[in-house]
Design a protein around this nucleic acid. Structure first.
Length: 233
DNA sequence: AAAGGAGTCAACCGCCTATTA
DNA sequence: GTAATAGGCGGTTGACTCCTT
């Protein structure tokens, strides 16, 4: 049986968007704002799936989108963030103003992955979390070359809402907005050694920074965390 | 000039999570 | 607490372009 599709595909147009469709979508969103994606196509007069409209807006029509070549600085940042976060494209995109997750994902798959392969995956920053077989977010299984040390990735947070987590916000203001972070004094050190286990034998493990905290970090902080992170693996 | 291969990237698909009823 | 719904995300596909032979 499977799940029901997000919308009926019958009679809907697929494939590349025309300029007319772009205009219709832009006009509608300028007047009514984002949201209600499922009902949007009908209201805007588009023969498209709501998801398709959202994707088109987010990746190409939204104001502030930067088109064009990825700069060397951006590439370096992508590599570093990927090493920290793995394939969390939306999080990585959040630190690259104007870039979209789809664009970064494509860039990684077409340009950077080849570089990594060519470099044998040994260079700094060219071994992402996924390549290191770090468990998926929320997975409690441990990894790492040192069996005594276990490194866990935090459960990812969705930070797509720029009004909730602005890139420019301070550590304190960010903390005050999110219950999952708690107050700043409650936040763990970047790599906090914890005792734990399910009431059985004690085990130690490290945590990496919560991803939404990372979003407010400076460039230097990201680099420092990255170096600390590598030392653990 | 033509054919085939490789590269690129926009768009789709299906799953997961958050929210709402 | 549960089900339904909507939004968001990463993986993948396929059409198009460019390059090589």
């Amino acid at each position: 049986m499977g799940r029901s599709p997000c919308c009926s595909k019958v009679g809907l147009k697929r494939g590349p968007w025309s300029a007319e469709e772009d205009d219709l979508l832009k006009d509608y969103l300028h007047k009514h704002g984002e949201g209600q994606w499922r009902s949007l196509p009908k209201k805007a007069g588009l023969l498209r799936c709501g998801k398709s409209c959202r994707l088109r807006w987010m990746n190409y029509l939204r104001p502030g989108i930067v088109r064009g070549n990825i700069t060397a600085d951006e590439e370096d940042l992508i590599v570093r963030l990927h090493a920290l976060l793995g394939n969390r494209w939306s999080l990585i995109a959040g630190r690259l103003p104007g870039r979209t997750d789809n664009e970064i994902k494509n860039y990684w798959n077409t340009h950077l992955f080849k570089k990594i392969t060519a470099a044998g995956g040994r260079n700094r920053g060219f071994l992402g979390a996924s390549e290191k077989n770090i468990p998926a977010a929320g997975n409690s299984s441990a990894v790492g070359t040192d069996p005594e040390k276990k490194v866990y990735l935090p459960k990812p947070m969705r930070v797509s809402s720029s009004e909730l987590f602005s890139r420019t916000e301070s550590y304190d203001s960010l903390a005050s907005k999110t219950s999952s972070c708690g107050s700043p004094e409650e936040w763990p050190p970047l790599f906090h050694l914890q005792g734990g286990g399910d009431g059985g034998e004690e085990e130690d493990f490290f945590t990496v920074p919560m991803v939404h905290c990372l979003d407010s970090m400076s460039e230097d902080d990201v680099n420092r965390v990255y170096d600390e992170y590598l030392q653990l693996l």
